[in-house]
């Protein structure tokens, strides 16, 4: 079961030198990234509004499994999907 958020929720993310997320802060609560299941990159729609995002499917220290992404243009991170 996954829940795709209607509006991606902005979060704060700390990454390591290679750009991989190490910890996140969601709704004020900090959590460690315990595992990364997948990473992928999407880049599209350049003719309208350029969309380039680096996605990560992570498991946090609180047990949350979710998809987060970094918007390459603004360099801000968002939570887009929660997995049960």
């Amino acid at each position: 079961m996954t829940k795709l958020l209607n509006k991606p929720e902005e979060i704060t993310v700390k990454t390591n030198v290679e750009g991989t997320p190490v910890s996140i802060v969601r709704k004020g609560k900090p959590e460690q990234v315990k595992g990364i299941y997948q990473r992928w990159r999407v880049a599209d729609e350049w003719w309208r509004q350029e969309m380039a995002r680096d996605y990560f499917r992570i498991r946090t220290s609180s047990g949350l499994v979710c998809d987060i992404y970094c918007d390459m243009a603004s360099n801000r991170w968002y939570l887009s999907r929660i997995h049960d």
Binding site: Q38, W40, D54
Partner: peptide
């Protein structure tokens, strides 16, 4: 590997 979701696998 082109950073597609299942490329790692």
């Amino acid at each position: 590997h082109h950073y597609l979701p299942d490329d790692d696998r």
